[in-house]
Structures are given as structure tokens and as C-alpha cells.
Design a binder for these strands. Structure first.
Ligand code: MN
Ligand code: MN
Ligand code: ZN
Ligand code: ZN
Lengths: 144, 144
DNA sequence: CCATTTTATGCAACTATGTTGCATTGAAAC
DNA sequence: GTTTCAATGCAACATAGTTGCATAAAATGG
């Protein structure tokens, strides 16, 4: 996904030592074009050497807490993880195929959100906006 | 939530017999001001007489499949259920408090979505759009 | 009305995802 | 080198949701 991101720097920029497991998890997330489940990440990281499932969950919690990674809700039972918006990666909506379950990142500007009314009237503090589209993906449309 | 919805009619309108358990589940969803988890629904329905947890899940699957109810993703491990948009209930965004976990329905017009670019360029078929806001709710702001 | 078929329900067992407690290891700090 | 603290692994647990199968309740057809 990203030739521009230096994962060690990203970790350091939020006070995390760039130790091997953190680097491995963050790289897997960063190099993939669409968000991955914890399971996906665990299996991918495992291919390059041992790591415990729990360690992956703990690293994910840490990366989300520090704001490097976004935890995205999904229509299934698991959550998904993708790079949080940063100067190289603007926030963008996601599309979930109801037929095959695939998730795609959409262009940042393909869906625009107008929140003026909300900002003027909402008494809480909005910290993030997630836009999820559901439907049938290109591939599944062809097959049908 | 709704004085205008006739739940039996709604069920019939999509080919489902308005049998008691379906009615009880749909009423609980319809009369609540914000989406509920399957667990919430099970406990609420249980107060008015016996029902099995699995039966609730099966009814929820059915109502979602028929489009009467929307399954909303949540930041936690469970999904939430609310009335699907219909003439009495326009689609609207939801707000999830990161501190207390509460979910609120927002005004339908408080957040506007502009999808022209997407519609012009996206090769799949978009069937639904979910807008989720996260942050700190009014109550939690006060407490902090 | 009874017999047959279909649909809904309950229960137990299971799967998937994520979490916790605790012991062990490994890397800083002194 | 010893102490200290963070990171890891492992087992056990928790929670949400699913499946298979038997039973009960409706609907259907005489
Ligand atoms: Mn993405
Ligand atoms: Mn709502
Ligand atoms: Zn698809
Ligand atoms: Zn709150």
C-alpha cells in the first residue's frame, strides 16, 4: 500500500519502540490494499516466523489506542484493521460486498460528507466518522 | 419509537406471517429509540414470556433478510439492530460513545452524503450506506 | 375431523473472536 | 552483573453467534 510510510518512524512518532513484532504487524496492515481481520494479520505475520495470536491482539490494541491504526466495524463477527488516516493516507470510505464478503477501500473523495448541521447542533464530541457502503461488488455482479 | 408503524402489517408486507415471536421481536426493535444488541432484544422479549436465544437470532436473521430491520455494525463485538428505513423512519446516522458505549440515532438530515462521484465511477452496486460517528457523548463530556 | 406436510421452536453442542491471569523471557537501566 | 520493566506465550475463559437434530405447533389436504 505504501512506499512512503516508514513504519519504524510511525511507531516512534507516537512513543512506541519499533520492536520486531510491532513492525511486522504494522507492515502487514500498511502494505495491504484493504483492511484485514485480526485473523488475517495473525496468519500473514505467522508466515514470516512465530508469533502468538494473543500478541497480535495486544499489538493491535496498542496501535489503535495510539491512533496509528483504525479499527473498522464489519458486517461479520470480526473487526478489521487498516492504517489510520495520516498525511500519506487520507480517510476514505469502505465498501463491503454482501455476496463474497470482500472489503474495498474507496477513493477518499468519492463520498463527501457534510456535517455542518451536526456540528452546529450536536452536544457530544465527534472524533471520527466511518462511512461503510454495502452492496454487490464488481466480481459478484459479473457472476450473477 | 413509533406510533405509526403497524408491526403486523409490516411483517405481512414482506410475506412473513405475523406470528407472536416475530411480533415481539419486531416491536422491541421498533419501540426503542436506539439500536439494540441481540442480547438486549433477547432479555427484553424474555420479560414478557419465554423465548429461546436461538429463536431470537433466527428471527433477527429473517427480519434483516426481508429488509424490515437493519443490522448495524458496532465498535464492540456484537451487532446492533434497528428499524430499517421506511416511510415512517428515514435513514439516519448513528453516534457511538467511546466512553460509555451508548448509541444514539442522529437526525436524518444532520449529516449529508454526496455520492455523485462514486455513482459515476464505482463498478459495484451500492445497496446501503451506513454512517457511524464515534466520540464522546454529552453525558460523558460532562463527567470528564 | 384425522393424516400429512411444513414451519417454528428449543436444546445442546459447537465455532469464532476476543480477553485475562500468570509464568517466562528478553531487553533496558542501574 | 543484578535489578527492573516491558513483551511474549500459553492455557483458560468469556461472549457472540451458528448448527444439527428432535419436538411442537401450524397449515394443508383429504
Ligand atoms: Mn481502507
Ligand atoms: Mn437509529
Ligand atoms: Zn463480492
Ligand atoms: Zn458516553
Amino acid at each position: 500500500m505504501c512506499q512512503r510510510c516508514n513504519y519504524a518512524e510511525l511507531l516512534e512518532s507516537c512513543g512506541l519502540e519499533p520492536i520486531p513484532n510491532r513492525m511486522r504487524v504494522l507492515e502487514v496492515i500498511g502494505e495491504n490494499a484493504s483492511p484485514l481481520s485480526a485473523q488475517d494479520i495473525f496468519m500473514t505475520v505467522s508466515r514470516t516466523g512465530g508469533i502468538n495470536r494473543v500478541t497480535v491482539y495486544r499489538i493491535l490494541d496498542l496501535l489503535v489506542e495510539k491512533g496509528l491504526v483504525d479499527r473498522l466495524s464489519s458486517p461479520g463477527r470480526s473487526q478489521m484493521y487498516g492504517m489510520a488516516p495520516n498525511p500519506n493516507h487520507p480517510a476514505h470510505p469502505h465498501f463491503h460486498c454482501r455476496t463474497c464478503g470482500a472489503v474495498q477501500c474507496l477513493q477518499p473523495e468519492s463520498v463527501k460528507v457534510e456535517m455542518e448541521t451536526l456540528e452546529r447542533t450536536f452536544a457530544g464530541e465527534v472524533q471520527a466518522v466511518e462511512i461503510r457502503l454495502e452492496g454487490i461488488c464488481r466480481n459478484c455482479l459479473k457472476r450473477a
